[in-house]
């Protein structure tokens, strides 16, 4: 079968039907994502996995650009924590960014992303570190005092229990009051993926309506 053949040839490849059943994607869309995955995973080392340098190259057109948030996203996509992103991990992680994915999943992903040291909390120092990282990558010049006041003000708004850190419950309430902070968690491209990466035209003999 077509899928078994691919699985043999490409380590980490997973059956699109399985991936479609676990995500908001159709089988055709998973096939199209495989086209994108192939491009990304062969840009430096053609081994069927996305390495961090390949991820950086895809995001920034620069394989050695260091970026705190790209690192965090890569680490969260790398569900098995083996240093590379496999096809199944790529599809499952991207599915959270689908316009139809549950908001709960988007909130959870963003929380993990901002919980830099994976303590289960977003701490004052972590928030400060992230704001500083953004300032370093932009041309904005904001004084330390202003940075501190933005961070203090945000912590005061989000940290309802007043213990100096934001837990998941507080995060949910904060996001509910400020929904725009999840804007990066939705990728409109994922609704038209088969147009951008039309592998289904060649590969899929199955109509999504038949599944």
């Amino acid at each position: 079968c077509f899928c078994l053949k691919k699985a043999k040839q490409h380590p980490g490849y997973e059956d699109p039907t399985t991936l479609a059943s676990e995500t908001p994607f159709t089988v055709n869309e998973v096939e199209a994502l495989y086209d994108l995955f192939k491009k990304l995973s062969s840009s430096i080392i053609d081994d069927g996995f996305i390495h961090k340098e390949e991820f950086q190259l895809a995001l920034f057109r620069n394989r050695s650009k260091q970026n705190l948030f790209a690192d965090r996203v890569f680490d969260l996509f790398d569900i098995k924590r083996n240093g590379v992103i496999e096809f199944g991990e790529f599809v499952r992680s991207l599915s959270i960014f689908h316009p139809n994915a549950p908001n709960e999943d988007k909130m959870e992903f963003a929380f993990k992303l901002y919980d830099l040291r994976q303590t289960g909390y977003i701490e004052h120092e972590e928030l400060r570190e992230m704001v500083s990282a953004i300032l370093n990558e932009s041309d904005l010049e904001i004084s330390e005092d202003v940075v501190e006041s933005i961070v203090d003000k945000t912590m005061a708004e989000a940290d309802l229990k007043g213990d100096g850190k934001i837990d998941k419950e507080e995060w949910k309430e904060f996001v509910a009051r400020n929904p725009s902070i999840l804007r990066n968690m939705t990728l409109p491209y994922l609704k038209q993926i088969t147009l951008a990466f039309p592998s289904f035209v060649l590969n899929s003999e199955v109509q999504d309506s038949d599944i």
Binding site: F69, L127, I150, L187
Partner: peptide, 25 residues
Amino acid sequence: AFFNAFEFISSMSSGFDLSSLFENQ
């Protein structure tokens, strides 16, 4: 001025803007 630090991060972060994965290919 930015309303809160998370708003600032999500608006400004290039590393957390995955649309580039599609646009740059």
